[in-house]
Design a binder for these strands. Structure first.
Lengths: 217, 217
DNA sequence: GTCTATACGAAGATAGAC
DNA sequence: GTCTATCTTCGTATAGAC
């Protein structure tokens, strides 16, 4: 494992190169499977730079979560603002679309979108309580707004019911983002199908919308 | 970390004690977070016994997946047999129930059910290709039967559509089994709510059933 | 303020004695 | 089958150069 990652801007400061490389490699290979030596090598940085800038591998991971999820959640908030500026209140289908689309069609300046999406999907399924805490902190401002909007769109549900359907949406989106199901239903040894395409977005939105609406009619 | 796990039968052979302890500790603490030294200590075995019986930590994990998922999938197949013995063909709701209920209400002789469910949820979100392969092998015989049954219940869908809804069901169940969403929507610092209860099973079934049926009407 | 060379303890894996 | 000793690689810490 030697040589730099050509997708990383070598002119950027070390700190930024480390975060960009972390999102890419954690997304592509997995977090545990990526050693700090391979990561700093790909970023063109010294092994000790991680400790200097982030204190630990987990600190670098948190910085990656911050960067990747902040952009995503800013976009979600922006689109929710638009939706709520309209005269009629948003439907459940509208809310699901606004939450899911930015996740499935991540726009990234350096074309890292697939790796970023996988990174977020992986982070959402991390068992470590500290990572979960970081994710929850990033998601909390968005959580609050979507839960309120869902509550208005589904006045017959209690708080537990709203939280349940919101968590199901977040979880299912994370599953698709992580590509965890790409290997499902293959005969043993058969090769893996590509991954979620943007064409699948409509199916994901339809599935989640119907799931949320279940029981209201 | 010293002392044996009281829940593990000390009379059982070393190999079985290791598998039982692995399912329990991997489920409770996470796979990466469980060291082989701590695991063998809890199982009352020597550190080298893992290498002898399973060649590696991953080999032990695979044995745990085999044991935990085989019981689950046997139960699914048994209930699917019952369903298909009836005169009228099973509905989508029936199929979802048969697949989801054994996952959410795992019956275990030693009351390890919660740990087993979390173990399976974690395994389903493992990024390692070799673990995914093992899971896919275990799931494949069940996959084939459920996909066929879903195809019969939804004659208007093509193969891709059937695979999509099946994968969504597997993924969403895994999310709930892993408890990954317990921490969602808490103010930062707030304590974590318990976990999925059996009472939630009906909501999960309703959500998935509606999601699968979306687009057929 | 940044970055590098180097060292330390713990992890998983393994060889060979018993 | 089981155990001790040992190997490599991991994440992390520190001293000091620029």
């Amino acid at each position: 494992m030697s040589g730099r990652d050509p997708a990383v801007d070598q002119e950027a400061p070390t700190r930024d190169r480390l975060i960009a490389t972390a999102i890419r490699l954690f997304g592509e290979r997995g977090i545990e499977a990526t050693s700090m030596r391979a990561l700093t090598d790909a970023a063109g940085a010294n092994i000790a730079s991680v400790n200097y800038h982030f204190r630990s591998k987990e600190g670098l991971l948190r910085a990656g979560i911050d960067r990747a999820m902040r952009a995503l959640n800013d976009e979600r908030r922006r689109r929710l603002d638009e939706l709520e500026a309209a005269p009629e209140p948003p439907s459940v289908a509208d809310l699901v679309r606004v939450f899911v689309e930015p996740g499935l069609a991540l726009a990234s300046p350096r074309g890292q979108s697939a790796a970023v999406a996988r990174f977020i999907g992986r982070v959402l399924s991390e068992p470590s309580p500290r990572i979960r805490e970081t994710v929850a902190e990033q998601l909390y401002p968005v959580d609050a707004r979507f839960l309120a909007a869902l509550g208005r769109a589904l006045p017959d549900r209690d708080e537990g019911g709203i939280k349940f359907v919101y968590a199901s949406m977040v979880g299912l989106l994370g599953v698709w983002q992580s590509g965890a199901l790409d290997q499902l239903n293959r005969a043993p040894g058969q090769r893996v199908t590509p991954g979620t395409t943007t064409a699948d977005a409509e199916r994901v939105i339809a599935f989640i919308t119907a799931g949320i609406l279940a029981g209201s009619r």
